[in-house]
Every structure is written in C-alpha cells, then in structure tokens.
Design a protein around this nucleic acid. Structure first.
Lengths: 202, 202
DNA sequence: CAAAACTAATCAAACGATTGATTAAGACAA
DNA sequence: TTGTCTTAATCAATCGTTTGATTAGTTTTG
C-alpha cells in the first residue's frame, strides 16, 4: 500500500474514532507511518483528506445505485435491492457511517459540505427516480417519495447507529454473527414495510 | 441574565453549531460577553460547561415524559399522538437534537453517554408498550415492534437533521413557517405509514 | 553511453496561530 | 474588610501548515 493510500486509511480510521476536530494531522501521519508533510503534499490540507475520503465512498455508493436502476427488473425488486445494498454497505462499516452523519451535521466548513452534499444528492436522485418510476408505471401507489426515502435511510441509519435500541442489548453487536442477524432483521422489516406501504389499493 | 447563565446559553449555541471540539473557550466567552476566566471559575473546565448543559436538558426532558399511554383512546390514536409529540419536540430545537446525537456517537465522555441513553430508553419503553398493546388487542397486525419504532424515530431524526434532503432546498428551514410546513408533512407521512403498515389484513 | 537535468517522494525542523487553563490584581457589594 | 466577581495578561501545549534539504528514479541531452 502506497503512502497516499495509507494516509487515507489512517485518517479514515481516526476520523471515525475521534471525529474530524479530534484528529490531528500529527496523529494521522503517525498512524499511517508517514511524515506529516505528506498529508499536505498529497491532499493540500487536512480538509482535503476528509473530502477525498468522503467523495470516494459516496461515489462507490452512487455507482451501485445506478447499476440497480438500470437493471431490467420490476420497481419493487429494484427498491428491495436498494434497501439490501444500503443496509449491507452501512453494516459493513458502521463507524464510517456514523462519522459521516456526525461531521455533516455541523454547519461549519461550507465548501467541504457543499461538495459532499452535492455527491449525496446525486445519489438521492437515483433513489428518487426508482420510486417515481414505480409510481408512474402503476406498480406503486402515489406516496410522498422523499419522505419514503427519509424513512428507509433513517431506519437503516438509526438501527446502525444505535443497535442497542432494537436488540435491547441482548445481542453483542461487536460479534459479526449477531450483527448479521440484526442486519437481516432490518432488511426484512424494510422490505415488508415497502411492500405494504407501496402496494396499490384495490 | 447573569454571567453564569449567559455562558451556558452561549456555549450551548456554539456547541450546537460547531460541535464540542470546534468550539473554543474564547468564542464562548466572546459570545457570552464574559471573560474567558469566568468559564473555569464557574464550571472548572470546558467539559464542565458541556456536562452542565446536558444534565440541565435531560432533567427537563424527563420531566415532560408523556402520559399518552394512559389516555383512553385507541392504540392507533395513541401511536399518532406519540408521533406528533416526538416530531414537535425535536423540531422545537433541532440543533440541540443534532448535537446530542453527534456527541453521543463519538463515545467519548462515557458518563454523558450513559446518562443520555437512560433518558432515551425510558421513552422507548412507553413507545413499545403502546404498539405491543395494540397488537395484543388485535388493533394492529403483528409486526417487528422495535424495528417499527426505529423507523418512526429514524425518519423523524433523519428529516430533522437534514431537511434539505427532503425539501430539495426549496424551503428555507431557518424560516419558522417553512419549518412548520415540513414538520406537518413529516407527521402526515408517518401517520399514513403507521396506518397502512399496522392495519390488520382481512 | 554517460553526464546533466528534471521529477516525485520524503524528511526533520520550524512557522505563526490558537488551544484550554491559570495567574495576580482590581472592582464591587455586603 | 471580607468574600464574591471580573479583568487583562500570560502560560505551556498543540494545532495545521510550510519550508528547505535530500533521496532515488527517470528523461533529456551532448
């Protein structure tokens, strides 16, 4: 792994654990086994590292969404695939997801947030398109699309961020097997919710 | 307003906007119209200020715990009342709600974490009891209760934290009137969702 | 081919600014 | 006068960033 990449991975780890402000460039360099100056050499600034990490991740998710949207399956199957994909992705790295929401909920560092929000809203549009197309084709009944998206993403986000609220701390989330059980339960719930909520009334 | 109080209010405002790490004691003093030394004089440290703010809020939160559950109305009406109450409460002070989740997700400051979690889980139990009772009485069809709660709270939290994702930035959230429109839209969506999802199949 | 020129990568050291905290001295009410 | 409040000045530590020098590898040139 080259220095550039190891800086990215080290920074990601520390940002997740300690937050953006709580992570110093010195600690990033130490964790990456690199010199401090390399951070500015490759990314211009600490903020540049953060933006790079975020856009990297968001683009990967966007690519996944687009692939699903272009699949030749029914709107409901698409939606279920999106739910699965989103849940899988977030459960694969919950601490990153928490970090993203944490740092985005701050009103400061405007240019950085504009960039990231732009990438997110591109993804939202694909999501929205899937549901809207389903409504237009008559597969779904008409609903508040953006609110439905907020529900799906909000539920996944909520369960991933505080799994204890759901399991009542009977499961050990640090255990991959237990985490998988919770993830499947979440996916099932959301699929059923989507099915019930979107089914056209007869 | 005395200096002590104005420091608390100034710190709360800045913590909400900039996060804990992003807020300096100097900026708190400036915002409060007080000298820097007053912060350490009254609260011992920056963290002392933070702890004071949180305990203050949590106490107020616990005092206003709903008695909806004891109302003599149908389970569905109870649930809708809970949805309304929860949305109202969070929309009343979104920035504080965001800050709470932000600092909570960092897992630093463990004593605070436990305190807040305790307050939240008390509310969860009321919530859960309402839905469970509705299922037992046959008003609701059997569903994954905890997941449903995660959906409701997750949706509200999601919309409150990033309203732009829903409105597409066509509304000005800092405008109380626009914020009210969004809140009503959210409540309507969730009521409809609950109705559709929980309705027993014939 | 070999010398010269250039390039990207890396480093230790230092920059000025800012951090949270403390001090000693003054102001003011009781 | 005593004890509470308030101040400006200052502390050491740490922050993100920049610097100038050095290395190793590649290109260009004579």
């Amino acid at each position: 792994m080259d220095k550039r990449t190891s800086i990215l991975r080290a920074a990601e780890k520390l940002f997740c654990e300690l937050g953006y402000e709580g992570t110093s460039t010195r600690s990033i360099a130490r964790e990456a086994g690199a010199n401090m100056a390399m951070i500015n050499y490759y990314f211009g600034s600490k903020e540049g590292v953060f933006v790079e990490i975020m856009t990297e991740r968001i683009k990967a998710f966007g690519a996944q969404l687009t692939v699903i949207d272009e699949d030749r399956i029914s709107p409901m199957e698409k939606l279920k695939k999106v739910i699965e994909g989103y849940a899988e992705r977030i459960f694969l790295n919950t601490s990153f997801h928490k970090m993203m929401h944490r740092e985005l909920s701050l009103a400061q560092r405007p240019e950085m947030y504009e960039k990231i929000k732009g990438a997110i809203s591109t993804n939202l549009e694909v999501f929205e398109h899937i549901v809207t197309a389903g409504i237009e084709s008559g597969d779904f009944r008409p609903v508040d699309v953006r609110m439905l998206i907020a529900t799906i993403m909000g539920t996944i986000s909520n369960v991933a961020s505080s799994p204890g609220k759901v399991t009542g701390n009977t499961l050990d989330i640090s255990n991959p097997k237990d985490r998988d059980i919770l993830k499947e339960r979440l996916i099932n719930h959301l699929k059923e919710l989507a099915q019930t909520f979107l089914e056209p009334k007869k």
